[in-house]
Amino acid sequence: MGEKNNPMLDEITKLVGVLSVELPTAAAKSLLGNGDREALRQTGWKAYDAWISLANETANGLYSNRVFGEVVGRSIGAALRVQRVVDAAASAVFGNLWPAIGLPTESAVTALRDEVKALRSEVRALGEELRNGDAEDELAAADDYAAARSAEAQNAAAAMIWNGYRPEQPRVRGSRKGGKKSVAL
């Protein structure tokens, strides 16, 4: 009957051999000046390689172990079931309940931010227009208007996040000189 190969035992024997015989011998030779540092270095790497091989063999042994496999298999199954429940709960809360209680979704807040940004650039363009026409008083008024609308919009965003407040649709301002109209919030 042939002897059964045990890879784990082979790897342990290899590591023990390097650590207990080869490495101390190489270190001693190096200290006594009989061996070069390169030989010691190579023996060090040999020990490292033996350790890595043993670690790989241990992992393989673990994977092949029935109990370990059962534990991992069941843990993965359980984790997936938990995740499914969590996903379903999150979907229920954020997909339906969240908007139902009046809280804005991320997309609503993002849309609001974009609108504020558009409003700012419109006001900036308007300011430029006014400055070019030397209409100082109108410029000041436009700046005040921009600041007020911006603050209003920012407050609206905060209020939306806090309690679901939705700002009313603004009135479209009457056309100015160029007939330009404000963007709708």
Partner: peptide
């Protein structure tokens, strides 16, 4: 391969759950 043994322990429902999620 040792990893095959590990994958054997995940039942079909486990694989189905992955695609359900």
């Amino acid at each position: 391969l040792a990893i095959y043994n590990l994958m054997d322990r995940i039942d079909d429902r486990g694989f189905e759950l992955i695609t359900k999620i």
